[in-house]
Amino acid sequence: MSLLSVRSLSVRFPVLRSWWRARALFVHAVDDVSFELAAGETVGLVGESGCGKTTLGRAVVRLIEPTAGAIEFGGIDLASLRPGQLRPVRRRLQMIFQDPYGSLNPCLTVEQIIGEALDIHGLARTREALRARVGFLLDHVGLAPADARRYPREFSGGQRQRIGIARALAAEPQLIVCDEPVSALDVSVQAQIVNLLHDLQREHGLAYLFIAHDLALIEHLSRRILVMYLGRVVEAGDTKMICRTPAHPYTQALISAVPRLDPVANRRRIVLTGEVPSPITPPSGCGFHPRCPIAEPRCGREVPALREIASGRWAACHLAWGGNRMATTGGVV
């Protein structure tokens, strides 16, 4: 049975544009997203900036209320719980934030930051127990227990991200939503944090929903991947297969745009043109059709469903099918 099961999740934010506009407008940040995540698994989440990745992650850990849809965690429907019942479940769901600078309270010591997480969930009864636990957690993420008395500003970005990880681990979670945990860090430190997350997963059987822009990193970390575009999942399945033969035209453009270290690697790049659509006024039909190099008339009319195009592979495109026709002929400039 899967640890997390998200069904038809939608999140909308109201936007007040002007007093004279009668109809309320909404940002459709997340639109009808469904996926499953097994215990101990990493699922990667990629997609264009503003496509709703953070919003989806925050909805999963209940930092924001979904507008519609269901989230089941460990077989329990989170929406059915009363606030008092939610707390022990939420403990198992933690989040690591993108910004290692803004996500730690600058007025608190590291011990207080991590201690807070322990306190909320009643995981350390005495001061000594708390101190010992904080020391253990810091050691676990590669910091010194003596760092407990220092303030966040005294640490480098990579070290701060380790503090954020220690805070998430304090609650003994089963699932951590990692929202671009390394994109603000140096490449050399990125590797240290990625290796740390890997080790922690093996040791504790943690599951990750790993949000990143960096496809190479996602490929390194996760066996399964979700590709989002404009609030919807447009492609899902095995990472290696998707990276090798993307089926959705957006994924094809995405993968072709990944900068490579090898400057002489000759490859065909698909540069998307046209305006990035707005989640306030999403296009009709397929959300990608205004920028899609192979769009057909019906793409502007009918919303493509996310369907299984081959075993273990899903794509939301009218023209995608199991063979690799599109990957080899379609839309390459």
């Binding site: 480098s156 990579g158 070290q159 490449v187 050399s188 430190v189 990125q190 590797a191 240290q192 990625v194 290796n195 890997h198 960096d214 496809l215 190479a216 990193l217 490929e219 390194h220 990276c243 090798r244 993968i255 990944v258 490579r260 270290l261």
Partner: peptide, 21 residues
């Protein structure tokens, strides 16, 4: 620095982090 970044399509079991900071 160049060895510590993952690259698409290159399978490495573990990234080569630069030790220390």
């Amino acid at each position: 620095l160049m060895k510590s970044v993952p690259e698409l399509g290159r399978d490495v079991p573990r990234l080569e982090a630069i030790p220390g900071s």
